[in-house]
């Protein structure tokens, strides 16, 4: 029973991180039908920026919760800027091209960003200080749920709620939904498509950056390659849940996190990735649109 509890907690943690990244994938896909391969790299850049910010802000005298939150804010802002720039350079010129051209462009951008960080910073692993301050009431059960895990869950829930709020109750959210549904009609209705797309990238990137910061604190180590695997898993999660659907991304991420965790615990760590992908294939065979995706009827 202990094992089950531990695996459940670890699955929840993993799922939360995947959710933060998967939301970016799913929102971008919903708006411009593009798989943003560079998104994993944005997550990584967020982690690096958070680390640099934490060092500088720490020198300026910040500490504790203040340091954590401000580092997170700086990381989110910078990641948003990167997301914007990537969109302007690599995706906007290709908005009216075939479906596959932006895909290749995204892959090229991903390679570029990875190597850019490797060269600008270092190919070595960097130590990431645990910025999350001690949480006293957690001390007795710290070996079951530690403070980092708790913070990851809370932040994820909070950000998801915030995102849902934005999408459902603001004008921007309305515009985003409109563009996702029918771009041309939205334009005719007076929505500024460019702004909406940019806003989508900004939101998605900011979320990923926060994920990067939290993982940095948790694992206490980052390097330029972390974006690759996390990105692929998060992307799988988004598709699993139904790409284009925000609740779907979260559900898919949680399902994936739990599946991997339990597979590693009860079967073998060797096969945890295999389980994840097999699960994906099985779910897509049964529901070709993903768990919460709408199977679109094609009109001829």
């Amino acid at each position: 029973m202990e094992l089950f509890r531990d695996l459940f907690i670890s699955g929840l943690t993993k799922g939360s991180i995947y959710a933060l990244i998967a939301l970016g994938y799913t929102m971008v896909y919903g708006i411009i039908a593009l798989i943003n391969f560079a998104h994993g790299e944005i997550y990584m850049i967020g982690a690096f920026t958070a680390l640099i910010a934490s060092v500088i802000l720490g020198q300026l005298g910040l500490a504790g919760w203040g340091l954590l939150i401000s580092a997170g804010a700086v990381a989110a802002i910078y990641a948003a800027m990167y997301g914007l720039t990537v969109e302007k350079i690599a995706y906007k010129p290709l908005r009216h091209s075939s479906r596959i051209a932006p895909l290749i462009s995204a892959i090229g951008m991903s390679i570029f960003l990875q190597n850019y960080v490797q060269l600008a910073q270092t190919p070595n692993f960097l130590i990431f200080p645990d910025l999350v301050p001690e949480i006293d009431f957690l001390a007795p059960i710290a070996h079951i749920v530690n403070k980092n895990q708790l913070i990851i869950w809370l932040v994820t829930i909070f950000l998801m709620a915030a995102l849902t709020l934005i999408v459902k109750h603001t004008r921007l959210g309305l515009a985003m939904r409109a563009v996702a549904q029918d771009r041309d009609m939205a334009r005719l209705s007076g929505v500024n498509i460019d702004r909406v797309i940019s806003a989508t990238f900004v939101l998605g990137s900011a979320l990923a950056a926060v994920g990067g910061l939290l993982i940095g604190c948790y694992m206490q180590q980052i390097d330029f390659y972390i974006g690759f695997l996390a990105g692929m898993k998060a992307f799988t999660a988004a598709v699993l849940g139904g790409i284009g659907s925000i609740p779907g991304a979260v559900l898919g991420a949680l399902v994936l996190g739990f599946a991997e965790s339990f597979a590693a615990g009860y079967i073998s760590s060797d096969y945890e990735d295999v389980v994840a992908f097999v699960l994906l294939i099985l779910i897509l065979i049964v529901r070709p649109g993903g768990l919460l995706g709408q199977t679109q009827t094609q009109k001829v």
Binding site: L3, D6, T13, K14, Y18, S269, D270
Partner: peptide, 19 residues
């Protein structure tokens, strides 16, 4: 067992180790 490096967290394998 083999552990996939570079992944988001090693919790599961650590729990298994404990178990």
């Amino acid at each position: 067992e083999g552990v996939t490096t570079g992944q988001v967290s090693y919790d599961a394998v650590v729990s298994k180790l404990k178990n």
